[in-house]
């Protein structure tokens, strides 16, 4: 416990803040602490958490990616057509196609960053626009509703009827989120590759000197982020039951903010799966709470933005001296 507080101070503080917010909402509203509300919160946040655990790997390796959400939209479209080619497919094929397409798009970023020595923010601003522009141009912004049944059917994992008669359900994206989180945790905590990613993000020159393969690090980081984005895209279609080319626009900033809130650092070497989950959940719970408290939905983004700005300021005050790693 003492170690947790010292080695993961951000996660620890986040946990406390989360507990306080939950406590306040429990007292202030009678709907917050209900099974139905909590289950819905989890269902709605699952996709962002899948995105987040992908992105955190890039941040750990010292990069930044803002193209992943748009990449997920591209993956959704291409997957629809590839599945049609295979005559409908199934979940296994869906995961394989979406995952590998995502990896492919991530590797484009990694290649440009590593080979041409372009900073990652510039590369991903460019690929963000290239992906989005081409997608909108080729699809003319068309929505797709005619999707395979297996893809759009809600799969309920656990359900429970509450006393009020409403159903509390956990759906497939939650299970995928759990698997994605465990896989990412395993990669970054338990494998040698994961530790090399931390080392590379922490001190790129030191990593190069001990013989870490720098190109492989970029490829793994952006490939992982791409794969998670592809899978998140697959899940998002399952959740909303349609494919809309600009549905995920802007999601990258929400996810990035949540991951940074969770303790990841621009400049690399820091970040955890727990932090991602806590960051995404905190923002989701605040929005949920504002909603339950009857505050105008137009105010959500403003309040969340202010909250993030304050959080970044506060979390940097104690680390101000270590935070000048501006270069990728």
């Amino acid at each position: 416990m003492r170690n947790f507080f010292r080695n993961s101070p951000t996660e620890a503080i986040l946990l406390i803040v989360l507990a306080v917010v939950c406590l306040i909402l429990t007292v202030a509203t009678d709907q917050f602490l209900t099974l139905v509300n909590l289950a819905n919160l989890l269902n709605a946040s699952a996709i962002n958490i899948i995105f987040a655990v992908g992105l955190v790997v890039v941040l750990i390796a010292g990069g930044i990616d803002i193209s992943f959400a748009v990449a997920a939209s591209v993956v959704q479209y291409v997957t629809v057509y590839v599945l049609a080619y295979f005559g409908g497919g199934n979940w296994l094929l869906g995961f394989l196609i979406a995952g590998s397409l995502g990896i492919g798009l991530g590797l484009i970023n990694a290649f440009l960053i590593h080979y041409f020595r372009i900073i990652s923010i510039v590369v991903t601003i460019a690929t963000f626009n290239a992906f989005f522009g081409l997608l909108m141009f080729i699809t003319s912004g068309r929505y797709l509703y005619n999707l395979p049944d297996w893809w759009t059917t809600r799969i309920i994992l656990v359900e429970h009827q509450t006393a009020s008669g409403r159903w509390a359900e956990l759906t497939l994206p939650v299970a995928v989120m759990v698997v994605a989180s465990i896989a990412t945790w395993f990669l970054i905590r338990m494998t040698t590759t994961g530790r090399q990613l931390y080392a590379f993000g922490d001190n790129p020159e030191g990593a190069r000197r001990v013989g870490i393969n720098v190109a492989a690090m970029q490829a793994i980081a952006f490939g992982w982020a791409g794969m998670m984005a592809g899978i998140a895209g697959l899940m998002q279609v399952n959740f909303v039951q349609e494919v809309v080319p600009n549905a995920l626009m802007g999601r990258e900033l929400d996810v990035l903010a949540a991951v940074v809130l969770g303790g990841a650092r621009l400049g690399g070497g820091k970040g955890s799966v727990l932090g991602c989950i806590l960051g995404v959940m905190l923002i989701a719970i605040i929005q949920n709470g504002l909603n339950l408290l009857g505050i105008s939905p137009f105010a959500f983004k403003m309040i969340v933005g202010a909250f993030i700005l304050i959080a970044i300021t506060l979390s940097n005050i104690s680390f101000a001296n270590f935070n000048f790693g501006r270069r990728t």
Binding site: A257, M302, V304, G305, A306, I308
Partner: peptide, 8 residues
């Protein structure tokens, strides 16, 4: 963060 705040 400022951008998210101003947009909101």
């Amino acid at each position: 963060a400022m951008m998210i705040f101003l947009r909101g």
